[in-house]
Structures are given as C-alpha cells and as structure tokens.
C-alpha cells in the first residue's frame, strides 16, 4: 500500500487542501514571529532611523543593569506564578476531577458547571470582583473571616510586596481551575470500566484503583495540562494589568514578562515606547516558552508513552 502511494505522482490535492490553513497560519502566526525577531535586531538612532545592531538588544536586555534587573525580576516572578499554578491549580483540578468521576456523586452537572463558570468570565471582571472582596476598606473578606474568628489574620494582601504576587496567582488559580478539571475529568471518563472492575474483583480499594490504575492512564493528559499551564503563565498579562496596572507594583513585585513587554513596547505614562527593545522582550518570551515546550516534548512525553500502552 505505502509503496503504491509513493510510486504515484505528487498528490496535488493534498497541497490544495492544506493550502488555506498553511497560508493563514503563516500569515498571522509565523510571519509576525519572524518579523518580530527581525525587528529585535535593529535599534533606532537619534534621528529615529533603524540601524542593524545584530544581537546588541539581547546583550543589553541580559547584561545592562537597567534592563537586566527588570528582566530577571519579571522572569523570577513569572516562575513563581507558574509554580503556584502547577502546585495548586493542577492538583486541585485533579482532585476535583477524581471527585466528579465518583459514581456515587449526586448533582455532578451542577458542580461541574459552577466550578467551570469563572473560566468563562472576563479577567477584568475577575480582577474587579477579587479586589472588592479583598478590599481592606469595604471588602467582604474581613467580615467573613471575623465570623469564623480569623479576622486578626486579615491583611491587605494585594498591597504588600511579599504577598501581592501569590495573591494574584491564587486569584488566577481560582479562575482557571476549571480547565484542568475538565481535561482530566474527560480522561478519567475514557478509562474502560472493565479495567477498574477487574481491579475491584481482585480486591483493590478505591485508593489503590486511583493511584495504581487511573493515575498512570491519565498521565498524558496531566502532561498536556502542564504544558498548557506553562504556556498560559509565561504569556500571562491580563490579570496583573487589570489589577496592578502596567507598573505592576508594589515595587515591581508583581511584574511578569507580559507587563514588562507592555511597558517596554507601548511605553507607560512618560516612558516612551521602544519598539525594538519590545520586540527583543517578545522574542525572549517566545524562546523561553519554546525551550519549555521542547523540554516537555523530548524529555517528558517520550518517557510517558510507555505507560499509555
């Protein structure tokens, strides 16, 4: 069969069918990426004309203290944001999915919809609601904590350097936990019942079934969830911008790559936008995400294949 295909002449219809997608994808995804990279190799002189400077912008971003301190700070904060999602959002998503797939659970649709609901809301609304909840002047958080005797622990979390980023990360977790839950839930539903039934007959407990049978079978899904979390967090911008503005205070403690890019590229208040440095930050963000994805594809996913058989 394969021999027959390769013997025939070039299958033009395949190219024709692929063309629309390839063209649109190239025009709106690949071309901008390449052009952004090209742009990052130029720098404007005094008169505003662009000169080719090769990798000078990257050297500046990584070594000039004015740029590198913001860059490393943003990258560090971005890792914190990602870690909170990995350590809080995804385990909770897994737990919720496991609970949802319990056969004895009643009102499953209601829980599923309620937990997924925040995902469908605008980040601006989420940011606004949580700022109101946590507001030290009229927020409901302190009153609620008072009712359970915890009001002494209330604190203006969003206003403190030490807690602002974690608070924002948890708000984001609250919003997005529905996505890993749905993906894992779907994977759990896909596990054939004869496997779990066989285990039950062999005398395995619920816990054993989950850890020894279900979890290994959904590992590829957990991998996909991790990759999605990674990409989404290193591209994050909107929640921080909506809550803390582009200066990502206090003292840049909530500054991530997205907000850094925004300030550099578009400018901020009296800071004039710098398109070529902005392109440099954007390309660096792309490279960081690319490295992360390649690491996943070549190191983790290959190993995982064994378990899926």
């Amino acid at each position: 069969m394969e021999k027959g295909v390769s013997a025939r002449r070039f299958p033009i219809h395949i190219a024709v069918f692929l063309a629309p997608a390839v063209l649109i994808y190239s025009l709106f995804m690949i071309y901008p990426l390449i052009d952004t990279f090209r742009f990052s190799l130029f720098s404007p002189n005094e008169a505003g004309n662009l000169n080719f400077v090769a990798f000078d912008n990257y050297v500046k971003l990584l070594t000039d203290p004015d740029w590198s301190s913001s860059f490393w700070n943003a990258l560090y904060n971005n890792f914190i944001l990602f870690l909170v999602h990995m350590l809080v959002q995804n385990p909770i998503g897994l737990l919720l999915a496991a609970l949802l797939s319990l056969p004895v659970l009643k009102g499953r649709q209601i829980y599923r919809t309620a937990i997924f609901m925040p995902t469908m809301m605008s980040v601006v609304i989420i940011g606004f609601i949580w700022q109101l909840i946590l507001n030290p002047l009229w927020g409901v958080a302190e009153t609620l904590m008072w009712h359970v005797g915890l009001d002494a622990f209330f604190y203006p979390w969003l206003g403190d350097e030490a807690t602002a980023l974690i608070t924002l990360s948890l708000i984001s977790v609250w919003q997005w936990v529905g996505i890993p839950m749905m993906l894992i839930y779907a994977a759990l539903l896909g596990i054939p019942e004869d496997l779990t039934e066989a285990a039950e007959i062999d005398g395995a407990s619920h816990m054993q079934i989950f850890w020894k049978i279900k979890l290994p079978l959904i590992l590829p899904t957990l991998g996909v969830v991790s990759v999605l979390t990674f990409v989404a967090n290193f591209n994050a911008f909107d929640l921080i911008y909506a809550v803390k503005g582009a200066l990502a205070g206090p003292n840049f403690s909530t500054d991530i790559m997205g907000t850094l890019f925004y300030r550099v590229f578009f400018g901020f208040q009296l800071q004039i936008g710098d398109a070529s440095m902005g392109a440099t930050v954007a390309t660096t963000m792309f490279l960081i995400i690319l490295v992360g994805i390649l690491f996943y594809l070549f190191v983790i996913q290959r190993r995982m294949q064994r378990y899926t058989f």
Binding site: Q131, N135, P136, L137, W138, Y155, L158, G159, D160, P250
Partner: peptide, 16 residues
C-alpha cells in the same frame, strides 16, 4: 491614612 491603604486604589480613595 485609611486602613489597608497599601491595597487602596484610586476609586477607593475617591469613595472614601
């Protein structure tokens, strides 16, 4: 300043 002024935003200030 108001309680928790570190997390107080401009609209909060105006409302206060």
């Amino acid at each position: 300043m108001g309680k928790g002024y570190t997390a107080q935003k401009y609209p909060d200030t105006q409302n206060l």
